[in-house]
Amino acid sequence: MKILIVEDSVRLRRALSEGFQRSGFVFDVAADGQQGSIYARTFEYDVIILDVMLPKLDGLSLLKRLRNQQNIAQILILSAKDGVSDRVRGLELGADDYMVKPFAFDELVARVKTLVRRRHQIKQSAIEVGQLTIDTAKRQAQKSGQVIPLTPAEYNLLENLVLRRGRVLSKSLLQSWLSDSSSEAVSNVIEVLVSNLRRKIRRVGAEQIIQTKRGFGYYVE
């Protein structure tokens, strides 16, 4: 699961980055519409948080452009414009949600999680896989009430696999979802994470859910 934040205010961008990072999200940040457009075209995001008044390319034009490019990310508009017509216009252009500034950080996080579920057509925040329950709201995995202690990266990897059940995901794709796009890739990070995950799942006595498709990547049945 990966988020793109397009916001021109330096201070807001910083605060959101700090908060999202500590909430365990993987995300990229763009300072203007053009940069946002390049990011959205290059990487696959689950949710895009979009400001409207942006330099170079305004949020609504970017929104239109993304929808024309068949971008399926859930888009949340975060704008200081609170008029009904502004909201309607944003939603009609293809936004999935609209939040007015100033906003509560916790609410933004909750809405982003909801949008992630919607993106993968999941109604409830808890997903049952085998003997495990993945709670996307609390961002934890449990086996019959027992919480498996996972690092944010391990949880993210598990969530990405569970959200796309049955689909074989390559290491590089998984890698791109696990870190922001500017960080350097460490070649065997996914193998290490998968091995850790399997060990922790085994430790609570649950069946293995992560399968290896040799030469291609990993998947959850």
Binding site: R11, L12, A15, G19, K101, P102, A104
Partner: peptide, 14 residues
């Protein structure tokens, strides 16, 4: 005023 307030609020909440 909304823009600085939203910045202020995000900073304070985080």
């Amino acid at each position: 005023l909304r823009t600085p307030i939203s910045e202020l609020r995000a900073i304070a909440e985080v």
